[in-house]
Simulated scan of single mutants.
Amino acid sequence: MFNYELYTLDEFLKDDWFREWVMNPTQATESFWNDWLRLNPDKQPIVDQARALLRALEMPHRSVSKADIAEAVDATFARLQQEPRYVVRTLPQRQWGWAAVAVLLLTGLGSYFFFYSQTSTKNATSVAATSAPAGELLTQINDSQQAKRLLLPDGSYVTLSPAASLSYPGKFNGNERRTYLKGDAFFEITRNPAKPFLVVTDKLVTRVLGTSFWVKTNSGHAESRVVVRRGKVSVFKTDDLEQADKKPEGVVLLPNQQAVLLDETNRLTKSIVEKPVQLQKPANNHELSYSEAPASQIFGDLGKVYGIQIVYDEDVLKHCQITATLGDEPLFDTLKLLCNSIHASYEVIDTQIVIYSKGCK
């Protein structure tokens, strides 16, 4: 067993077991790392830093290709070689990306690497911050045309979309961490079961313990939306927030689920996100491959990979055999192809996908 108690930041970033937990969590990795953190609470800050860096690779603002990483690494090492106060350890080529990430964090350039590796310094974004007296809220406003990442007092990260603003206290006291959002933002929340994190908007409140999710309030439509990437959140109407004598009526969201509040009806509903992402990778980490496999097996595997309940009649599908290799194609494109191959169809109902088929002879 690795001695994780002695790990440095870059060693966490390069550890396969740690990266699997952050990027593609399974029951095994969740159980191990949560138990380990309970036994090593002093390691929570460095673990949170490493998780935030790895999760930034999944941020929806832009994808980070291998070319992006190589370019950032070359630029970083060139810059560090010009500054003698840093010591750079030579690593094999395949490890450069992770070493660069660690160095960039220590030099205050982590956000630049992940979000703006192709953006020149002259185009860097700025956030206009106004501070208030002790006991009042700080307000961060993204007045640029690009996303801006913020670090909150509890170690959580928030990425503000253009024109968005976030208000929060200089220190999270009391029994909750309450923030106020205008506009769109992506949240990566440091887990703290004893102190839930609240995002309050004009229409909705999102309550979490520790996870990552989108809150969208100015998408150009007459609606408010919360989209969950990882973990579990509860969402309810802002009008219910201060009603101490009434338990808020809302919805609980899991990964690849969203809650939408339409202004026209003032009704809160939940559904599957438009483009679900894989929550756990296939066994070979690349694709699902089948040769004359029962259709029910394939639909079952897809449900596990995406964390979505796919409903089908196993007796009806038992004679439907499919030969296919499934890679990183969008889930709904994959379902369409599979259904067409066995003359079936599917329908999305709330947070479930229902397969309709008359069977195969």
Rank of each mutant, 00 (worst) to 15 (best):
F2V: 12
Y4I: 04
L6Y: 09
D10H: 07
D10L: 02
E11V: 09
K14A: 15
K14F: 02
T26D: 14
D42L: 06
I46Q: 03
D48T: 12
Q49S: 13
Q49K: 14
L53W: 11
P60F: 03
I69R: 12
I69M: 15
A70V: 06
A70D: 14
R79D: 15
Y86V: 11
V87D: 11
P92T: 10
W96Y: 15
G97S: 11
V101N: 07
L104P: 01
G110Y: 05
F113T: 02
S126I: 10
G135V: 05
D143K: 05
S165Q: 12
K171Y: 11
N175C: 02
G183H: 08
P193V: 09
P196M: 09
V199T: 00
S219L: 15
S234H: 01
A244F: 14
K247I: 14
V251H: 05
L254W: 11
Q258C: 08
Q258A: 10
L262F: 11
T269Y: 09
S271F: 01
S271K: 08
V273A: 05
K275T: 04
K275E: 10
P276W: 01
Q278N: 00
Q280C: 08
P282D: 08
A293R: 12
I298G: 02
E314F: 00
K318H: 09
C320T: 08
L337Q: 10
C339L: 07
Y346A: 11
V354Y: 11
